[in-house]
Amino acid sequence: MTPLDSQPLVQVKNLTKHFPVLRGLVLQRQVGLVRAVDGISFDIQRGETLGLVGESGCGKTTAGRTLLGLYPPTSGEVLIDGQDMRHTRGPELMALRRKAQIIFQDPYASLNPRWTVNSIIAEPLRVHRLLPTEKERVERVKELLRLVGLSPTHLNRFPHEFSGGQRQRIGVARALASNPLFIVCDEPISALDVSIQAQVVNLLEELQDQFELTYLFIAHDLSMVRHICDRVAVMYLGLIVELAERNELYENPLHPYTAALLSAVPIPDPKQERARQRILLKGEIPSPLNPPSGCRFHPRCPLAKAHCAETTPAWREISPGHWVACHEVA
């Protein structure tokens, strides 16, 4: 079992996750299907940060959680370090779980309010029996606290005593405890103040440098995504519509949705803001319960032609590393 280092750490192939919509009390019947993630494929190289952006409800969280096996996938395959969670059992599954961790958006909901900081951070150590004695575990927790910039004397405090940014760093410490290779960061900074966001982002970057971590960075703040990610995938209604290296994507967006999204990002520069032409999209993101036919973006697309409503655009590599799904891109 020696995975080649050239092999991507995370491989996602045609992953779908559908949630049935059920009605009825005793005998439930299915009245619909939320196509939250509807066939996405991508790789994440070791040590790389892949950004996943898109509007609310497009399936970013679902994708991240399905990747970690928190939701069983409807179809498709996720390989982490060459292994699929669905085909591993017992100790092998535990070893796989140790390698992949998650950081959540809400620093209030993601820490058990009845546990001390010590128990929270030590949980992965305890569950994976990484350190045999309580004393060693406490030492390791102290070290992790120091690592994320919190004082080790706060070991026995409860989450409610910390500010949002500090809680988020406790979440980071917990994710790091088991020495994972891969961390899904699900909007880790959206709930934080601007002055605190930079603290957490810099911490994530430093940790990545130091421990060669691989991140899937889910966000809707496109400025931050450009800053922190190596490559960026844009999601729309359960599908990835464009994927490219970050500067390529931001400077040369091919998909009309990416272009619209980027044109709407506010830029902290009044002169530029005044000069800018926004591409205003018509209407709202449709429901994933019955997504539009053909290209899912066509009802809002400024470039839409008749065939866009009929055929699903292919996922094509336009230039090396720049993938897009659109009929109208040459």
């Binding site: 002055s195 930079a198 982002v201």
Partner: peptide, 14 residues
């Protein structure tokens, strides 16, 4: 961070 510029440095945190 800026969406319109290439990244040139770490963010300055407060």
């Amino acid at each position: 961070p800026r969406a319109d510029r290439r990244r040139d440095r770490r963010l300055k945190s407060i």
